[in-house]
Design a protein around this nucleic acid. Sequence first.
DNA 1: CCCGCGTGTGGGAGCGTTCCCATCAGGTTG
DNA 2: CAACCTGATGGGAACGCTCCCACACGCGGG
Lengths: 338, 338
Amino acid sequence: MGATQRPTIKTVAARAGVGRTTVSRVLNGSPLVSDEARAAVQAAIAELGYVPNSVARSLVTSRTDSIALVVPESESRLGSEPYFSAVIRGVSGGLAGTQIQLLLTLVRDRRELDQLTRFLTARRVDGVLLVSVHRDDPLPGLLEELGVPTVLAGRRSPAESLSHVHSDNVDGASRAVRHLVDRGRTEIATITGPLDMDVAHSRLRGWREALRDAGREADESLVAPADFTEEGGRAAMRVLLERRPGLDAVFVASDVMAAGALAELRGHGRRVPDDVAVVGFDDSIVARHTDPPLTSVRQPVEEIGRTMTELLLREIAEPGSARRNVVLPTSLVVRDST
Amino acid sequence: MGATQRPTIKTVAARAGVGRTTVSRVLNGSPLVSDEARAAVQAAIAELGYVPNSVARSLVTSRTDSIALVVPESESRLGSEPYFSAVIRGVSGGLAGTQIQLLLTLVRDRRELDQLTRFLTARRVDGVLLVSVHRDDPLPGLLEELGVPTVLAGRRSPAESLSHVHSDNVDGASRAVRHLVDRGRTEIATITGPLDMDVAHSRLRGWREALRDAGREADESLVAPADFTEEGGRAAMRVLLERRPGLDAVFVASDVMAAGALAELRGHGRRVPDDVAVVGFDDSIVARHTDPPLTSVRQPVEEIGRTMTELLLREIAEPGSARRNVVLPTSLVVRDST
DNA sequence: CCCGCGTGTGGGAGCGTTCCCATCAGGTTG
DNA sequence: CAACCTGATGGGAACGCTCCCACACGCGGG
């Protein structure tokens, strides 16, 4: 009622005294339009407040001008929230200047996975960014099969066939351990992420390599796997203290787990850093507020999001181009826990 | 190449030996279909792996089956990140079981606002969830004008005309202050959020009312406005200590600001809670890790997101129905800072 | 016996674009 | 001066769906 019908390309054409096609050409920046026609069309568009109907465009071009960021629920629940929003910010930044919209899809159960599958099969998005990949995640394979352009944050394994972006986890972990060695620590344990994730393996490898290079012990009894949660970090710390009561340092594969480890250490009367030094990973907001503030390996999360987006846009623009992967550098932020 | 063309409704119709319309009716759950026809169509759909093209549907129905969550960049940058992801989780939960997709739109500058305006004008979404509303935010008015179904988290003012959901900020703040009074504190200051946001006013009002009810002083010199950032909280704390060196408690309108206040108090040699008790707001992940852990007013953020979504879906389904607003209860989580 | 009605069905039109092709003017070439 | 090209233009068709309408059928009632 009241509001007059939204103008279509036809209205604009009539107003400008040209054909539909010419309007379309102006809209899409074709050079095959005379200056006067272009001016007339632009004037008409302005007068009518015309906004093209992108649904109609999608129908014929079969592009949607949107991408999906897919997040397995576990990821967002398990305290990695700062990571999550930084990625979003990066993605959004990478999309700035394009007309491309971002869809956010949390997948928390089988039903939602099926729904997502249908959605992807229907080609409702031009591409997918996938965060938090586990070794036998079905989604990457599905995406590959469907031929949907995809970029992963992280990888299923070192042999990942899809494009992906991640930070240099091995080097970051090594840095952390070298720092502990430099501080004179001798019995350096580690708490890892879930070992069905490559990121956990890489950080573990960094720990191993740094210890080996320093000629220190890298015994399995110094390794306790956890699940990236605070409670998990706490439990792993308990196990380590039992197994290796003499340990004087721990490299923890995430800040949130490190927070749990700190609590457990406190519970056992160990002083940090005097008795035990602790390094986390992520340099998230948590690291600044623990007691004591946590030395942590900083990874450029926002940049990961931005880079993923760039790779994805390229893959969409040039289908069939080679898969790429980008490794971004980490750095160590030293605080009071070491 | 290779991959055979995706089936359309026509393919299905041919396979099932019925007309396009009958297939469409089955797809849309119309009762005017014979059982045999329905069975034939469903079989054909299964055999062909047919997935309806929702873009084509959108073109004719002019519904998009998607909603947008609009987040002004300030909000997501300024440490409210846990809030942000909890809202997303709630929204996503509210959408579960529907076929509706969530678009995430960060608006960080004028250009992006214009782009969003065009997007909304083009009716690319069925409705909008808007988070972090400031008093003279142009967006709510625009949405109202466009007649796009909208639900806000928070409100522009107590006279908000759009549907909105928020927690009971006045009551939450009062709770916090009553708790401080119960602990025997006598000189209770407050650090507020930005005063162009209703949420900041409400929490300030809660502080005032609780003090008045307890017969305590609620002088303006006890009020220091900040901006929801850690640094802002720190600066406000500094001002308060200068103005009211005898203060023995502070109610801070967000955990992140409270973290800043704690740091400043420590810098001045004040012990928490012995010399000064501190209460935050949000009960975010930060509150659990500050030193000491922060007593905080918990608000059900995920539920806010879910409720917003429910209101929005209803508003989309019944256009022109009355605007609603929902106020959700808060609770106090007591930790070591009081 | 015919009309009317309700149920099930299918074809045509249309949603607002883009793309393919035909057309046309004007200039260049042989 | 005819044949040709090149740039600018517009109309038809198509994208895949939903909706409107027409129609066929069987049945009950006047």
